[in-house]
Design a protein around this nucleic acid. Structure first.
Lengths: 205, 205
DNA sequence: AATTATAACGACATAAGTGTCGTTAATCAA
DNA sequence: TTGATTAACGACACTTATGTCGTTATAATT
């Protein structure tokens, strides 16, 4: 109902689609959602949807892209802030502003896992994936290394292996959260234990 | 080419299909393989395949079932063996006979992840999943608890949370192994670190 | 050798998803 | 008011996968 329309309107529409699509992905997962599902949820026609995105993969990657932008802004703000303690910095980069674990998780996480795992044979996607991994990796590794140089952390263990272990732990929780109910997983308890572990190997305090 | 055939022959054929199917799943992943792929790999016709299995899900579950049988035999043999040390027992239940981490992984692991994660909205599959989780969980939790009662392990931390953490770590490695190359992941190093962690919280030696 | 049971086959109907493309109609500019 | 532009639409052709079912042919039985 609107040709030769303002740039804002188009952006709005695009955002609407992405928003609706995100809800669909959360509900049905990546593999099982179809363009039809997204059309229905958004209330847009087939042709309308394809005007904005060329396929499901495209839609999903755009959602990831948007998230990544928000996240990287957050992280850069964290790093800009006053660094009283590298430990706090690490906590913030893992758990966000709260700096402490809870039982909440990213509702899109299971779909992300699907997307990455089912795309493991696709070179382009694999590359995409690897970049995301190393982005996260770098943040943790840098903080730990700086903390070690500063003397706040013990350098008994390699900062890079610790950084990887953090990601492994988060990914593991993500898997189990996809499968088990919140109550079954007890992610908070696990996180608390994991922090104990980090404290031990970094010799914090 | 064989009607009214021996039970052995049928079992053989079934095993052949499962074996071929497993290879296909390893190569293409769960979601992307089709019955056609399995037919081609096995060299069996459409009708032939459907005589043994009613759909892809069925095929995959039978593969899992077979594995589970082997594993539970192994585990029960481990538990039957001489228990010099609960620590060794734990290592064996995590890493198998070798009792030490390596860079090898279950090649079907990524497909299993797919299967469980994409099936998270299916009640039957969710239940199946949960059972598998708690099977693994119980093995670790029992060993740890017995070790704690025996005094070999510290009981500073809850055995169940530790058991969950072991699974989380393994699942996390599984995810990252699906995405990254062997070299990128450095799973062995991570495992070594993880063992250090277990030693610390269990106060081994 | 004849009979029988049935494993194995492959064509088929059905269903579902994809991306395209010609049409419609609404907005802006002249 | 008219004309140009193009967002939005939805029918369409195409592709791919699924599970069924009637047919074929062979191993076991008599």
């Amino acid at each position: 109902m609107s040709p030769k329309v303002s740039k804002e309107h188009k952006e709005q529409r695009r955002a609407n689609i992405l928003n609706a699509a995100k809800n669909v992905f959360i509900e049905l997962g990546y593999e099982h959602t179809t363009m039809k599902h997204i059309m229905d949820e958004t209330g847009v026609s087939r042709g309308g949807l394809y005007q904005y995105f060329s396929n499901k993969e495209d839609v999903f990657e755009c959602i990831l892209e948007e998230e990544l932008n928000h996240e990287s802004i957050e992280i850069s703000e964290i790093l800009k802030g006053s660094v009283q303690s590298y430990w706090d910095l690490l906590l913030e980069s893992i758990y966000g502003e709260e700096r402490k674990p809870d039982d909440e998780m990213d509702p899109l996480a299971p779909s992300k896992l699907e997307f990455f795992i089912t795309g493991r044979n696709n070179d382009r996607r694999k590359e995409y994936c690897k970049n995301r991994y190393y982005n996260g990796f770098k943040i943790y590794a840098d903080i730990i290394e700086q903390g070690q140089q500063d003397g706040e952390f013990s350098d008994k263990f390699d900062s890079e292996v610790i950084a990887r272990s953090i990601i492994t732990f988060i990914d593991g929780l993500s898997v189990d959260q996809s499968i088990l109910s919140k109550e079954d997983l007890k992610s908070k308890q696990q996180s608390v234990l994991f922090l104990e572990y980090l404290k031990m190997i970094l010799e914090v305090k």
